[in-house]
Design a protein around this nucleic acid. Structure first.
Lengths: 167, 167
DNA sequence: CTTTTGGTTCAAAATGTTTTGAACTTATAA
DNA sequence: TTATAAGTTCAAAACATTTTGAACCAAAAG
């Protein structure tokens, strides 16, 4: 695997830490991104990332759980392969956003514990309402994506081509 | 401080860990939520949470940085007080969402490293487009909140009252 | 069966993060 | 000034997470 890709993989590791996941999770994800194969085997991951079987096993399980990658098994082959999950990106986002409901109720329960309604309660109500309302809005926007994505992706690709022409 | 509130504070600590922050950050936030004062002093936090000055100092700085709380200073008083940030909740969300752009470009850069465009590239383009598009949508929805919040908060409060009547 | 391959498990080691506590800084009060 | 109160800083300790590696299990091949 060439140097540029290996660097990319490490960068993905750091980025994933920023998103609150482990470095190894980012590396595995990054490897699946830049690999020129449709699917990558457990052993290939282990070898490319020079990590232990235990680490690969645990981290792939976790990445599958949060929906970033998915296992692929092939007939007549007992190895497990992996690829970037084909699950809609929106699905993952919706799940993450659902945490907002938890934050909203945390605030509501806190508000209920206060001696009396005051300026702080009003503000807490506003924040909690915002987050709870947001969950529904994000769901709707996510659904809207399916309608607009063709157009948007065309635009994105166009801009990329423009940039590479300028070089 | 009564037992119920202290329990709430610990719960807030655990919840914040779930959101990717530290337990102490959650405790401080939780304390500001349930305190019946407008503002709470550094020393009160230290005492209630039984933590060191160093820990309070570092964690409040961080909570201020990410916009969850804000410092308050009073004339003729050299203590620092804190309260839940009155910054619009949307501001914080917009900043968090901006990380999606980073994820989007991570995918784009990975795609550029691939030998040739394949099925995986197509899928990567779709995910990256989704996240980048989402950032703008979330911004718009967040702005919309200002228009609809009055109505929504009324509804929320109504439902709460209904629930407490039923008890 | 027995062997081999592919992966899982889990305790211990390595690494990272958070908290403490003591020394230090800064600003006000005396 | 000098003294004191309020925070900050930072190295070390406590604590948590991640990774390793060796032992283990299950399924397919021989």
């Amino acid at each position: 695997m060439d140097k540029e890709k290996l660097e990319y993989i490490e960068e993905a590791g750091l980025a994933f830490e920023l998103f609150g996941m482990t470095r190894m999770a980012g590396r595995i994800f990054g490897y699946l991104v830049v690999s020129d194969q449709e699917v990558v085997s457990f052993e290939q991951i282990r070898e490319t990332l020079k990590a232990s079987k235990g680490s690969i096993s645990g981290t792939t399980k976790n990445l599958i759980h949060v929906g970033f990658i998915e296992p692929v098994s092939l007939p007549g082959d007992r190895k497990t392969y992996f690829r970037i999950s084909r699950q809609k990106a929106g699905r993952i986002l919706k799940e993450r956003t659902a945490l907002f409901l938890k934050f909203g109720s945390l605030l509501d329960r806190g508000r209920a514990l206060k001696a009396e309604e005051d300026r702080v309660s009003d503000w807490l109500l506003e924040i909690s309402s915002f987050y709870k309302w947001m969950v529904h809005e994000v769901d709707m926007v996510t659904d809207k994506w399916e309608m607009v994505k063709e157009g948007y992706m065309q635009k994105m690709k166009g801009e990329e081509d423009e940039n590479s022409e300028k070089k």
